[in-house]
Amino acid sequence: MTENRDVAERRAQILDAAAAVFGRKGLHTAVMADIVAESGLSKGGLYWHFSSKDDIVAGLLQRFFEEHVGAVESIVRAPGPAAPRLRELGSRAVTDLTEFDGSRDLALEFYGLAARRTDVRELLRTYYHRYRELIAALLDQGNEAGEFRVADSADTAMTVIAQFEGLALVRSIAPDSVDLAAQVEHFLTTVIAAADTSPSGDD
């Protein structure tokens, strides 16, 4: 158990260092030597955990997904009406996505890496599947409580994911053209209004 904890701590140390370097120098300018220096580890120590910069980017991707899915699971399991929790989910997505502000090319690189590597593509597929399940579960809770009338929660969940991902990609390319928080709020307001069962359509 101690050995596993040490490995996890070293990997986290390297990923933290890589995130700092990518934010400061840019993903494509940074080299492994920069990450070695930032981490305080030896070159051999770093390469024992990650054999390439692509491996480190994949590690950052996996960590981001695990943290984000964990937060979404907590929102879905929380008590209370579904609409405020759907907005909270949107706020969490905005918070997590803005963590990449220092290195927006990471978002694009994730997709490029998925095109090159089967393991990363499978990681993305697994993440989207779980994310879709969680959002659909939240919509189903709203349906069961009589709060929503969503005909197909899985399809609606995928629409929500596509909107979030699309905004993130546009923001990576043209950051000044997207107010992420405002756009997510506008989209979720539209979704909630369309799904609302109250006569006035207000949530």
Score class of each variant (00 low, 15 high):
Met1His: 09
Met1Asp: 04
Thr2Pro: 05
Asn4Ile: 10
Asn4Phe: 08
Val7Glu: 15
Glu9Arg: 15
Arg11His: 09
Ala12Tyr: 03
Gln13Glu: 13
Gln13Cys: 14
Gln13Ala: 15
Leu15Asp: 09
Val21Asp: 06
Val21Gln: 09
Val21Ile: 09
Gly23Ser: 10
Gly23Ala: 09
Lys25Ser: 06
Lys25Asp: 04
Gly26Glu: 01
Ala30Met: 07
Ala30Asn: 08
Ala33Glu: 15
Asp34His: 07
Ile35Asn: 01
Ala37Trp: 07
Leu41His: 02
Ser42Pro: 08
Lys43Cys: 05
Lys43Gly: 12
Gly44Val: 04
Gly45His: 07
Leu46Lys: 06
Tyr47Pro: 08
Ser51Glu: 12
Ser52Tyr: 03
Asp54Lys: 01
Asp54Gln: 11
Ile56Met: 06
Ile56Glu: 12
Val57Lys: 01
Gly59Met: 02
Leu61Cys: 14
Leu61Thr: 14
Gln62Asp: 02
Gln62Gly: 04
Arg63Ile: 03
Phe64Gln: 00
Phe64Cys: 00
His68Leu: 11
His68Tyr: 14
Val69Phe: 01
Gly70Leu: 05
Ala71Ile: 09
Val72Asn: 00
Glu73Thr: 13
Ser74Phe: 11
Ser74Met: 09
Ile75Met: 02
Val76His: 00
Arg77Thr: 10
Pro79Phe: 03
Gly80Pro: 02
Gly80Ala: 00
Ala83Gln: 09
Pro84Asn: 09
Arg85Ala: 04
Leu86Arg: 11
Leu86Met: 12
Ser91Met: 12
Ser91Cys: 11
Ser91Gly: 15
Ser91Tyr: 05
Arg92Tyr: 03
Ala93Glu: 00
Val94Glu: 06
Glu99Tyr: 00
Phe100Ala: 12
Phe100Pro: 03
Asp101Gly: 01
Gly102Ile: 01
Gly102Trp: 00
Gly102His: 00
Asp105Ser: 13
Leu106His: 07
Ala107Pro: 08
Ala107Leu: 15
Glu109Gly: 09
Phe110Ser: 01
Leu113Thr: 05
Ala114Trp: 02
Arg117Ser: 12
Thr118Met: 05
Asp119Tyr: 03
Val120Gln: 03
Glu122Cys: 10
Glu122Gly: 04
Arg125Gln: 11
Arg125Asn: 13
Tyr127Ser: 08
Tyr127Arg: 10
Tyr127Val: 08
Tyr128Lys: 10
Tyr128Arg: 10
Tyr131Phe: 15
Arg132Leu: 14
Ala137Arg: 15
Ala137Lys: 14
Leu138Met: 11
Leu138Ile: 04
Leu138Glu: 04
Gln141Trp: 08
Gly142Arg: 09
Ala145Ile: 07
Gly146Leu: 13
Glu147Asp: 05
Val150Phe: 11
Asp152Ala: 12
Asp152Asn: 15
Asp152Ser: 10
Ala154Ile: 08
Ala154Thr: 13
Asp155Asn: 14
Thr156Arg: 14
Thr156Trp: 15
Val160Asp: 05
Val160Glu: 10
Ile161Ser: 08
Phe164Gly: 10
Phe164Ser: 09
Ala168Gln: 04
Leu169Arg: 11
Val170His: 14
Arg171Ser: 12
Pro175Asn: 06
Ser177Trp: 01
Ser177Lys: 01
Ser177Val: 04
Asp179Gly: 11
Leu180Ala: 00
Ala181Asn: 06
Gln183Ser: 12
Val184Ala: 05
Val184Leu: 06
Glu185Thr: 15
Glu185Phe: 13
Glu185Cys: 15
His186Val: 05
Phe187Ile: 03
Thr190Asp: 02
Val191Asn: 11
Ala194Val: 08
Thr197Ile: 13
Ser198Phe: 07
Ser198Ala: 10
Pro199Val: 02
Ser200Trp: 06
Asp203Glu: 12
